[in-house]
Amino acid sequence: MKTGFFKQYSKQLIAAAVILVICIVLAILKPAKDELMSHTSPEMQKMIEADESSSRKRVTVTYNDLFIINYASLSTSGAKVMSEKYVGFVGKVYPADEGVMKVTGQMVNYTYRMLGCGENLMHGAKLTILLTTLTVIFGVVLGTILALAKISKKKWLSGLASAYIFFFRGTPLLIQLFVVYFTVPGVCGFAWRDIFSASDAEAVYKGAFTAALIAFGLNSGAYCAEIVRSAIQSIDKGQFEAAKALGMNYFQTMTRIIIPQSVRRMIPNVSNEFIMVLKDASLVFAISLMDITTISKNIMTSEGSYLVFIPALVIYLVITAFFGFIFDKIEKKFSVYE
């Protein structure tokens, strides 16, 4: 099994190893933070030293470490406005006040912020990945239940499942999100942040995250139901008959025979669903969660930088590629018997 895996993915693994080694080398060669800071002008250094003994800071220092490259930005406000930016890369420190290095510095800073580095799980790419993964897990579980209900011989049950699927596929996800986030607590008389402790500084974000997870999960469940249903119905009728002839009941037949076989057939579609959810997750900007999209939009608004969307796209692509690989691997793992 292990050797099989290495053989199967030898090219990708070698490529990944080469990239990793290059990154590690670049990370080792990268100048340290102190070195970056030592390039600042004497005037700026004086102000930083003065700040250390003063309660009122005059210099705003931003330091972003992106593993292979780092970036420092120092700016003052008040009587004398100064701004200095530096990029550190492969043993050298470059001033980043203009030209290519300025753009590079900006990109490092934007990427750093959109990835949510230095922040908790409720920020940037971490939020997006967490929300997407949980949504798809929620969606597949709910979708399986809905699919079994839909193919049930009980008319009311399959009708109920059909109605559910019809509703959630037939209305915009954004409005579903609004309903869960605004309407439901409004009608029921609670606030999403209340489900977390009042002393939790992130309660608002966690509350919004919960609402988003519920809305996306309910929606994804409707799509996953169709994925699961078509996978189950693609299983040969003889499998049901063999299980029945051996005395298995419906539950045993489904859990031991039919669903394990359906899983492999679901994976390509679930992978697709994952990518759809990943992109749909950007809708959380409407309930002010700080995901990649929201952060990029905020940067655009506050700094007027139209270039911010390029690293945003790259981050989404990298996430998609990574999970595409994972799903591919899972599919191969489930295909051993074919």
Binding site: D236, G238, E241, A242, Q252, R256, Q261, Y337
Partner: peptide, 28 residues
Amino acid sequence: MGMVFQRFNLFPHKTVLQNVCEAPVIVR
């Protein structure tokens, strides 16, 4: 009553041994 089908209907995701063991363990 045991039944043998024209198209075998073995469980493809289980090994031969698992196919044979499945029902006695799960059902009986």
